[in-house]
């Protein structure tokens, strides 16, 4: 049996709408073995993104625990979770979320720039840049290094977002509807990249989507409805 890299135990998440409580996730438990391509499928409003944010340590659950590589993430200090997001986790979002003022190369270098102090940058820059250029070239973006995000197409932006998520060689990649904002051809290309990374490099991928055709390409699919997991497909 493969090692469990990520585990959720009885997760719940509440939002407060004035005086009334809205429970968007309830009793969600799951385990993700290393190198698995897991897809969480559900209709809009089912709590997929909320679950992904909790698993990716972007948000704190109201109830339950997230175990990352055997450590209870929310029992650790916030600094520990920040470092984990910077060094062990990659995110790809539906709307790319690239920094509009930075070039393609700078966007890709962002995780390295977050963890490197200015005094070390002159020595570290060359290695980081080489790695970023390599990843961008692998994703077919080597010719757009100095471009701003607004000068790119949707598919190109998503490739840059993927480069940024992969540049620091994360152990888990979280993808929130990565093809949701793309046409079918470009979406297919993005999925092929994700599958390739999972197969060739053994990257653990956790993806949420509402598209069953996209979900079909994963190793395992979990259905989420009204904040509860239904069953494994």
């Amino acid at each position: 049996m493969s090692e469990i890299i990520l585990e959720a135990r009885d997760l719940a998440k509440d939002y407060w709408m004035g005086p009334s409580r809205l429970r968007v996730l309830q009793g969600v438990s799951l385990s993700v073995p290393r190198s698995e391509f897991l897809c969480i499928l559900g209709p809009s409003g089912s709590g997929k993104s909320t679950l992904l944010h909790l698993l990716g340590l972007l948000d704190r659950p109201s109830v339950g625990r997230v175990i990352f590589e055997g450590e209870d993430a929310f029992a650790q200090p916030k600094r520990w979770r920040d470092r984990l997001r910077n060094q062990a986790i990659g995110f790809v979002f539906q709307f790319y979320y690239l920094m509009p003022d930075l070039t393609v190369l700078e966007n890709t270098l962002l995780p390295a720039m977050i963890r490197t102090p200015l005094i070390r940058w002159p020595l570290a820059r060359r290695a980081h840049r080489q790695r970023a250029v390599q990843v961008l070239e692998d994703l077919g973006m080597g010719h757009r290094l100095q471009h701003l995000p607004r000068e790119l197409s949707g598919g190109e932006r998503q490739r840059v977002a993927m480069a940024r998520a992969l540049v620091h060689e994360p152990r888990v990649l979280f993808a929130d509807e990565p093809t949701g904002n793309l046409d079918s051809v470009t979406g297919g290309e993005i999925m092929r990249v994700l599958q390739g990374l999972n197969r060739k490099q053994g990257l653990t991928v956790v993806m949420v989507t509402h598209d069953e055709r996209v979900a079909a390409q994963a190793h395992r699919v979990l259905h989420l409805a009204d904040g509860r997991l239904l069953h494994d497909a």
Binding site: K78, N86, Q87, Y97, M99, I114, R115
Partner: peptide, 16 residues
């Protein structure tokens, strides 16, 4: 604020 969210998602600290 979206940039702030992106930076924090990538591991930047609140104080930073």
């Amino acid at each position: 604020s979206r940039d702030v969210g992106i930076l924090k998602a990538l591991g930047a600290r609140d104080a930073g």
